[in-house]
Nucleic acid binder design. Structure first.
Lengths: 249, 249
DNA sequence: TCATAATGTGACGCTGCGTCAAATTATGGC
DNA sequence: GCCATAATTTGACGCAGCGTCACATTATGA
C-alpha cells in the first residue's frame, strides 16, 4: 500500500514534470515548437515514457489547458473572498481571464486550440473530462455571482433569459476579445486601444445592458479592477503554474 | 498581350480550382483531412503545381479564410440595401457571421485557426494582406453603421469610447460565442440554448448597454433577423463560395 | 523542324508522430 | 546474495505529410 502510493506519487510527479516542461517549451517557442522529442530530451526520459502518460501531443495540450484554468481558479477563489457586490466579482473573473492571456499569450493559443474540433478529437477521454471539469468550475463561479446578484436584487432575470445564457455572454466577450487582440497585428483596420481598457468598457456595457446593478455610471469598477489586478500580479509569478516542484524557473 | 492575359486567366482559374477543392475537402473531412497530396490528387495536378500557387498549407488556409469572408461580404452588401435603422443592420452583420459558421462549421474552424499565431507565421505576406483586406472591408461595414447611428442621433459616443471599440464589442461577442458553441459538446456545465437565440439576446443586451436606439424593448429586431435570415438562406446555396466555376456542386 | 523557354512532375529528404520488441531495472522468494 | 519473474524504460523503426528540385514534358517562335 505504502509502496503503491509512493509509485503513484512518483508517476504523478513525472507527469507534472512533463507538463511543466511542455509549458516552458510553449512559452519559449510557441505551440509549434512543442514536440514529443523535445519534451523527452529536456526531461531526459525517452519518447516511449512520455507516451506512457499522454496518448498524443493533443492530449498534452488539453492537459496543459485544463491545468492553466485550474490555476486561474485557485487565484480566483482567493480573490473571491473579498467583500464586494456580485457584479464586481463578475468583472474580476472576466478580466482575470484576460490577464492570464496577456501574460502568457502562447498558452492562450492553447485555450483557443483546445476548443478546436481537430484537437479534441485526438485527445483522450480522460483529458477531455478533466478539461470539462475545469470549465465547469469556472462557470460555476460565474453562475454563483449571477445567482447572488439575483438574490440580493442587483439583477432581475428577464423573461426568456436563463442564468446559463448570462454566463455565456461575458465569457464569449472575453474569449472573443482576446482572440481578436491576439491577431491585432494582422488587423490594420482597427485602432486597438489597450485590451484591458476595451474589454473593461465593453463588459460594462454588456452588464449595463443586463441592468445589473450597480450600473457602471453609478459605481467605480476601475477601483475594483485595480485592487484585484495588483493581487493577481503579485501571485501569478510565484510558482510555475500548476507546478509544485518549481523545477523550471 | 492577349496570350498573357489568357495565361493569367488560366492560372487564376486553376488557383480557384485548388481553393474550391480544398474547401470541399475541409467540409467533408475537416481541416485535419486537408493535405497537399489530396488536393493534387483530386485536381489531377501534381504537388509541385499546387506549390506554384501556395507557399504552404497554411497559405491555403489563409486564402480560404479570406475568400469566405469575401463571400460573406457580398451577401452582406446585398442585404445592406434594405431600408432600416443602423442598429438593425449591425445586428444582421453580427448574426450573418454566425449563420455562416453554423452552415459551415469546418470552415469556421479555419477562421479561428487563421487568427492563430502559428498559422499566420507560416502564411505568405500576400495572403495575410488579402486576409487583412477582407477583415478591413467587414469592419468598415460595421463602422459605417456606427457612424450612421451617431449621425442620426440613435447613438451617442460616450467620453473615452471610440468607434473602433464599439466595433470590436459585437465582433468579439460573436466570435467568442461561436467558438464556445463549437465546443459545446465538451462543456457540460452549461445548458446551451440555440446559438442564434443566445447571440441575438446577448447582442441586444450589449447594444442596449451602448444606449443604441431603438433599444431592444422598443423595437422588434426579431422581425429584422427573420427577413434577413431568409434572404441569406436563399442565397448561400447558390454558388460554391467564391467559385465562379461551380465545378464542385 | 528544331532550339529554347516555360511549365509541370513526382521521387526524394526531412521532420515529427506513435509503436513495440528488446534491454534495463525492480521485486520478492529462497 | 542470487536468481526468476514482473514491471518499466528505451530508442530504432515505420509511416504520413511537408516542401524541394532535377528532370521530363509541353509550348513558343524563328
Amino acid at each position: 500500500m505504502n509502496t503503491l502510493t509512493r509509485k503513484q506519487r512518483e508517476l504523478q510527479q513525472r507527469e507534472q514534470l512533463f507538463l511543466d516542461t511542455a509549458r516552458q517549451v510553449i512559452r519559449e517557442h510557441g505551440v509549434s515548437g512543442l514536440t514529443m522529442e523535445v519534451i523527452a530530451e529536456i526531461t531526459e526520459y525517452s519518447k516511449g515514457t512520455v507516451y506512457k502518460h499522454f496518448t498524443c501531443k493533443e492530449d498534452i495540450m488539453c492537459a496543459l489547458c485544463a491545468d492553466g484554468i485550474e490555476y486561474l481558479l485557485t487565484l480566483l477563489n482567493q480573490m473571491m473572498n473579498f467583500e464586494g457586490r456580485p457584479r464586481e466579482k463578475s468583472v474580476i473573473i472576466a478580466l482575470s481571464y484576460l490577464l492570464y492571456a496577456e501574460r502568457y499569450p502562447e498558452e492562450f493559443d492553447l485555450i483557443l486550440a483546445a476548443r478546436n474540433t481537430n484537437i479534441r478529437q485526438k485527445a483522450s477521454p480522460e483529458r477531455l473530462e478533466a478539461s470539462d471539469n475545469a470549465d465547469e468550475r469556472i462557470t460555476r463561479l460565474i453562475k454563483e455571482q449571477i445567482r447572488a446578484a439575483i438574490k440580493c436584487g442587483d439583477l432581475k432575470l428577464q423573461e426568456g433569459v436563463t442564468v446559463d445564457q448570462l454566463c455565456l455572454g461575458p465569457w464569449a466577450l472575453s474569449l472573443g476579445m482576446i482572440a481578436l487582440y491576439e491577431a491585432s497585428d494582422l488587423i490594420s483596420s482597427i485602432e486597438f486601444s489597450p485590451m484591458q481598457e476595451t474589454l473593461y468598457q465593453q463588459l460594462n456595457f454588456l452588464l449595463d445592458g443586463y441592468q445589473w446593478h450597480p450600473l457602471s455610471a453609478e459605481f467605480d469598477y476601475r477601483k475594483t479592477i485595480c485592487n484585484a489586478t495588483k493581487l493577481l500580479e503579485n501571485n501569478t509569478d510565484a510558482p510555475s503554474i500548476g507546478s509544485t516542484l518549481g523545477i523550471l524557473k
